[in-house]
Design a protein around this nucleic acid. Structure first.
Lengths: 224, 224
DNA sequence: AATTTTATTATGCAGTTGCATAAATTTATG
DNA sequence: CATAAATTTATGCAACTGCATAATAAAATT
């Protein structure tokens, strides 16, 4: 290949970076960060690599974010927010009975897009940071609290709804909390374990097993 | 403090590295690796830092291990082995009834030394590597398979023991497997969530909640 | 159209990283 | 005790890292 051709090229330099509005570019960088971490791992997600994924040069990151650490933080928030939104849309239908809403919530947390290689890999890559960095710990805690609160509400609604029907004995506040912890742990554990199995047959089983276990814990049929 | 003293010191150079037998030194390096990762995170666990933790110079790592990656692998194996041993000693007593053995196993997996800040932090730091590195993935899978097998055995023994007493209906192979998945996920989830809470009151609750949930899942009293 | 503001690149630097290599030191062996 | 083998240090290097800084280019404003 003749080297002369290189001279003839009239600099297609900025194929993408045509100067986006700040917020849009920032968004692209956040997505590029997540994509990069998912593919290369956190160690591989250097400032230059992320910039490459976004199709820009590394200096731009410093312009839109104060530092790499800050960008990582924002990306982590984005990830957790996305997960939360996924389970939130699953229970968007307020008209359906409480038991069904809880069931949908559980199901969503055991299916794509939450149970996805990419999501789990990202989650795993960020996790260690929450043990070293206080701000990252805070982000995790905050997201967790939001999920837990939603979980407790769904559980309480489902239980009191069923109680009316079956005239069961009531539950204390602590029992609601414990129940939320149990279900939450179960979901997290299944999610984590399920991500390791490569065979897709496991994925349908995952929902089945999860709903089955949840039914036992809640003493309530959540299978259908 | 006078600087002269420095000259008077007759080179205490190798306070520690007096030439240990190869296996012992290797062991020290593995422990240093784990300690270093626990304190500094995987990112902070550089060859030099690990050597510093072990009280030797960095070159020594290359001598005992082919590369840093190899050392990390061995350290991961050591971690998982330690966890497995902890839960294994909990069920060492073969004479106790199957239900008690299962209970002890669950309890061990929800108490120190398995539920410890250090253990969880280490586990979390290694986890991302299992998604990038095939060998690390294999190590994780192997350890997981071992734990699962033990879990299944304990469950099956407990169930068939109780079945004799209560003349329950039998269980299929798949039901054993599913039960093991459920309990395993529950334990993992509780362990992970419990590690985030800093208040120690949660730790006693953790065992209580875990045994409570396991009792529901197994339809068998494991609380005492 | 001129100029100011905003976004982007280009370049480089100081610190770190894993690792190679040679020298030094300690232990084992004859 | 001499020599060889095993262990440990010392030194350095090439690649990489995050970030600063100045130069460009594009858009907005006037």
């Amino acid at each position: 290949m003749p080297k002369l051709q290189k001279l003839k090229q009239q600099r297609p330099k900025q194929l993408k970076p045509k100067r986006e509005k700040s917020e849009i570019r920032k968004d692209e960088l956040i997505e590029a960060t997540l994509e990069c971490i998912a593919c290369e791992g956190l160690q591989g997600a250097t400032v230059r690599k992320v910039a490459e994924y976004a199709g820009v040069t590394n200096g731009l990151i410093r312009f839109h974010f104060g530092s790499k650490d800050e960008m990582i933080q924002v990306a982590y928030q984005r990830l957790l927010e996305g997960i939360f939104q996924s389970s939130l849309t699953a229970v968007a239908d307020d008209k359906s009975p409480p038991r069904q809403r809880l069931r949908q919530f559980l199901k969503a947390n055991l299916s794509p897009p939450i149970v996805t290689a990419k999501t789990v890999v990202l989650w795993a890559n960020f996790l260690p940071l929450t043990y070293k960095d206080k701000q990252m710990a805070f982000i995790r805690r905050a997201a967790n609290a939001k999920t837990t609160a939603l979980f407790e509400d769904l559980i309480e609604a489902a239980l009191s709804s069923e109680r009316k029907i079956r005239s069961d004995k009531g539950f204390s506040e602590q029992e609601y909390r414990h129940l939320a912890v149990k279900l939450n742990s179960l979901i997290d554990g299944l999610w984590l374990e399920g991500s390791m199995a490569e065979n897709s047959s496991y994925k349908k089983e995952l929902v089945e097993i999860g709903l089955d276990a949840a039914s036992d814990l809640m003493a309530m049929n959540l299978r259908e």
